[in-house]
């Protein structure tokens, strides 16, 4: 099973971002890092040969960041 070097870098970066989201205590920072996760997912889908899935993920990543920030306005920003 052959894997390219850039695919391996993207997947490892994806795991690193997930660990950063789990460890962080500032929910607004988690939202912004989640949009970076969505961007890495776009590049991963593009590497595996499906451009329309990548396109949809890019748009939905933008929309979900807006929704999370709007929903965060009623909840305390710092979670213990």
């Amino acid at each position: 099973m052959q894997i390219l070097i850039i695919e391996a870098m993207l997947l490892l970066f994806l795991i690193f971002i997930t660990v950063c989201i789990l460890v962080s205590k500032d929910i607004l920072a988690c939202t912004i890092i989640y949009s970076a996760f969505s961007f890495c997912a776009v590049l991963t889908y593009f590497m595996f040969g499906s451009p329309d899935v990548a396109f949809t993920e890019a748009v939905i990543g933008t929309m979900s960041t807006i929704f999370f920030v709007a929903a965060l306005k009623k909840v305390d920003r710092w979670c213990k």
Partner: peptide, 25 residues
């Protein structure tokens, strides 16, 4: 569907009071 979910989320922000909701400890 995307437009009406966004409208529903924004309608919920109508009372702009300072509610202090703390996460579970």
């Amino acid at each position: 569907t995307i437009i009406d979910i966004m409208d529903a989320i924004i309608e919920r922000l109508d009372d702009d009071t300072e509610e202090e909701v703390v996460c579970d400890e």
